[in-house]
Amino acid sequence: MKIAIMNGPNLNFLGIREPGIYGSGTLKDLETSLTEVAKKYKDIELIFFQSNGEGELIDFMQKCYHEQVAGIVFNPGAYTHYSYALADAIKSISLPVVEVHISNIHARESFRSHSVTAANCIGIIGGFGFKGYEMGLDGLINHIGQ
């Protein structure tokens, strides 16, 4: 079973950007950790994708649909708060998507407290750092029925 781990804008700067909020781990560190976590499941293949571009994220979601990916763990980054295009893409692909955030978006600037993408996801996890991705992966796999 294939599961996609998607990261939106500026998440390629993990470890550089605001380590007090996002930690010192890099995107590669996150991917390595999730690859290890996935080993506890039978027949799980993770596909990693990061883009700073909204259109590229949408294209990748549609690719996931066509390639029969079972589900997506997705950190939309700043697009969380205003990308109706990503919200529509999540809805249109009819795949289970778990939205994750490294920080607690509700405990930060007021503009970050609203997610336009969450309504089309099966769940949302935030505030647990990289561990939130693991929680999202576990929840998604449980939802799928693995």
Rank of each mutant, 00 (worst) to 15 (best):
K2S: 03
A4R: 00
G8N: 09
P9C: 12
P9W: 06
N10L: 10
L11V: 04
F13C: 06
E18L: 04
E18A: 13
P19Q: 04
G20K: 06
Y22I: 00
Y22M: 01
T26Y: 00
L27H: 06
K28Y: 05
D29H: 02
E31L: 00
S33F: 05
T35S: 13
T35H: 03
T35I: 02
V37M: 10
Y41P: 01
Y41H: 12
E45Y: 04
L46Q: 12
L46M: 09
L46P: 04
I47E: 11
F49R: 05
N52D: 15
N52W: 06
G55D: 15
G55H: 15
D59I: 05
F60H: 09
M61A: 05
Y65T: 03
H66Y: 15
H66R: 08
A70H: 13
G71Q: 10
G71A: 07
V73H: 09
N75E: 11
A78W: 09
T80A: 14
T80K: 13
H81W: 11
S83Y: 08
S83E: 02
A85W: 08
L86C: 07
D88W: 12
A89W: 11
I90Q: 04
K91N: 12
I93G: 00
S94T: 10
V97D: 13
V98E: 15
V100R: 06
V100F: 10
I105L: 11
I105K: 06
H106M: 06
R108L: 13
E109H: 10
F111C: 12
F111G: 15
H114N: 11
A118Y: 12
A118E: 12
N120T: 06
C121L: 05
I122A: 04
G123A: 15
G123L: 08
G123C: 08
I124C: 12
I125K: 14
I125S: 10
G127K: 08
G129K: 00
F130V: 03
K131F: 15
G132A: 04
M135Y: 14
G136D: 10
D138Y: 10
N142E: 13
H143C: 01
Q146V: 10
